[in-house]
């Protein structure tokens, strides 16, 4: 029972990170029907942006809560600009062409950013503690870490903010309209380009937040972390139903729990396989994902 509860905490913590990244995949897919392979690399760049910003501002020497907030906002802003730039330079010129072309460009951008990362940042780098860390033993053997609390609270806050933006604001309504039908939205006078750009910005901001959270938790970041987490987060988005915002959250949590349960009860070496086994399972029984709508192709 203790093992189960401990894996539950670990799983929710990991799942929250997956969910934050998965939201970026799912929102871009919703508007452009594009698997944005470069999204994982935006997340990776966010972690390094946070590291260099923290060093430049000296937050790593004398950590403080306002300092961390500045670093977080800086990293998230950097990710937003990066995401919007990628969309503008690499995807927008191809929007009229076949989706295959955009998909391959996305893979190209992902490779490019990852290799720039490898050249510029080298391999593994350690990430300083910017916030005081604590461990609470809830009962014998059941540990809750302050990092888990950070991840839960930040994720919940960001989800509420996202929900507010998507459901309650003008731009959110425009986003939903564009994802419903891009052509119709354009005819109704919605500036589609600006909405797509905004969608990339939001997704990238969430990825930047996830990057800082994971860096503060694991204390090491590397240029290949984008492909590792990105791929899993994408699977999470498909599990939940790609294009669906609540689906991405549910898929992320489900995947995080499944991974920690597998490493807790079976063997940690099989942990990486569970994502893909779940993926194939869901595609066999409910291809549109947990929350996805079944769409019929119309001519």
């Amino acid at each position: 029972m203790i093992l189960f509860l401990q894996q539950l905490i670990n799983g929710l913590s990991l799942g929250a990170i997956y969910a934050l990244i998965a939201l970026g995949y799912t929102m871009v897919y919703g508007t452009l029907q594009l698997i944005n392979f470069a999204h994982g690399e935006v997340y990776m760049m966010g972690a390094f942006a946070a590291l260099y910003l923290a060093k430049w501002l000296g937050v790593d020497q004398n950590p403080s809560v306002p300092g961390v907030i500045v670093v977080a906002v800086g990293a998230m802003a950097f990710c937003a600009v990066l995401g919007m730039t990628i969309e503008r330079v690499a995807y927008r010129p191809l929007r009229k062409m076949s989706r295959l072309n955009m998909l391959i460009t996305a893979i190209g951008v992902s490779l490019l950013l990852q290799n720039i990362g490898l050249l510029a940042f080298g391999a593994l780098q350690s990430f300083p503690s910017l916030l005081p860390e604590a461990k609470w033993e809830l009962t014998a053997g059941l540990v809750l870490r302050s990092q888990d609390v950070q991840i839960f609270t930040t994720t919940v806050a960001l989800m509420l903010a996202l929900h507010h933006i998507v459901e309650r604001t003008q731009i959110g309504r425009a986003m939903r309209a564009v994802s419903h039908s891009r052509d119709t939205a354009a005819l109704m006078g919605i500036p589609v380009d600006r909405v797509v750009s905004f969608t990339f910005a939001i997704g990238s901001v969430l990825a930047g937040a996830a990057a800082l959270l994971i860096a503060l938790d694991k204390h090491k970041i590397e240029p290949t972390m984008g492909s590792a987490y990105g791929l899993k987060a994408f699977v999470a988005a498909v599990l939940g139903g790609i294009g669906s915002i609540p689906g991405a959250v549910a898929g992320g949590l489900l995947l995080g729990l499944a991974e920690t349960m597998v490493s807790g009860y079976i063997a940690s070496t099989w942990r990486d396989a569970i994502a893909f086994i779940l993926l194939i399972g869901i595609l066999l029984y409910k291809p549109s994902g947990l929350f996805g709508k079944h769409t019929v192709e119309k001519v």
Binding site: L94, S98, T105
Partner: peptide
């Protein structure tokens, strides 16, 4: 790898 990925992106945009 940088040359390689740039080649991929530029080809898709210029000669899809």
């Amino acid at each position: 790898m940088i040359i390689y990925s740039l080649l991929l992106i530029v080809t898709m945009i210029v000669r899809p």
